[in-house]
Design a protein around this nucleic acid. Structure first.
Lengths: 198, 198
DNA sequence: GTCTATACTAAGATAGAC
DNA sequence: GTCTATCTTAGTATAGAC
């Protein structure tokens, strides 16, 4: 399984990382080719050698970021569906968010408003969610078929769990409600324990 | 209970509505004073008569939008906690999103990345969530105390429900996964029915 | 493939007339 | 309170040398 971003040449990768830094340090509104060049050890015009326009660069950068995010989803399938679900939740909502993960999530939140209107951005966010939903759904389905879980609709339950994870992460990044993350996580575990487990 | 935006003069309100239109029609990156003036029946410099800077305008606009969002939260408290919860969910996740609500939610999604770094934006998003969480928590607590609900932690359950609502809405706005909204909602109702109700 | 230099455009913001 | 006109800065993008 080759990621598209593996096909990038060294300089293109440097540009992607510079864009990441510029976005994290200065936000979307201030993201300009000049600002990216500042984070890069190259001149502005070098960026135009690789990308026709700022828009083309941004599109590639979203692809680059989505690939990196998807690489962090550790799809280790064990033999205990409940433990697998808990593992997924702990991976996506770690108690301690590493700086690297925090930045990755921040970039996705920063780019997400583009998905409101631009189809090509929307499709990438759709891809992420479909991927996550599929992983969770398969795990729930295995649990239901193994009679470890109640006879719930795996699709419905998976979308519920995914929405809760996303809403929790989103709140964690955009509010000061530190206790909310732990509370939502606790209730999600309890839901799996009492509602899902038969 | 007076909203801060009630204190705005007629022209300021016009500017707020013009900003809303500019943001909805052209997105955050293209949001400029010139662009707002285009949506307004006034010159650019008139805007500077009311606001010292673009930043001051944006801050006021977030306040204006948060007030409008909070006005849509119909806190009708009935005598049936379960029905009240369902009502809250149906209000925040209506089956048919009116164009007006869709725009309001889109504006919040568009402004939310600002909350990642700017404390003053962050506080407003914190306010929204705290308000919603409190409403849900009170409802759950009433249900627990009336023995209609199981003896769950009202805070934990409320944060779970809120996160699910937010994640569902966020996905609805930023992806093409139309079925996901209905699935998450169905599972949330089922959670209330089977897990919360005793 | 990377640089310097530059054309062009649009932005934020202000001055001053009415 | 609203206008026209303007200053200044910064952006996107290109041309052409090395």
């Amino acid at each position: 399984m080759t990621k598209e971003s593996d096909a990038l040449c060294a300089t293109e990768k440097e540009i992607m990382h510079a864009t990441h830094r510029a976005l994290v340090n200065s936000g979307y509104a201030a993201l300009s080719i000049s600002r990216i060049a500042d984070e890069l050890d190259k001149a502005k015009s070098t960026i135009y050698h690789y990308y026709d326009s700022k828009d083309a660069l941004l599109l590639q950068f979203l692809r680059f970021t989505v690939d990196r995010f998807e690489a962090t989803i550790n799809t280790s399938i064990g033999d205990d569906p409940k433990e697998d679900l808990n593992h997924i939740i702990r991976t996506l909502l770690p108690s301690q968010l590493t700086e690297e993960k925090r930045q990755l999530y921040c970039v996705l939140v920063t780019l997400s408003p583009q998905a409101l209107e631009r189809a090509i951005f929307r499709e990438q966010f759709t891809e992420i969610d479909t991927r996550l939903a599929t992983i969770i759904e398969k795990t729930v389905r295995r649990g239901v078929e193994a009679d470890v879980f109640r006879d719930v609709d795996p699709t419905h339950a998976a979308e519920h769990i995914l929405a809760t994870i996303k809403g929790t992460m989103y709140g964690r990044l955009t509010t000061n409600r530190e206790a909310a993350t732990a509370a939502a996580k606790a209730s999600l575990f309890s839901y799996i324990d009492s509602h899902l487990v038969s």
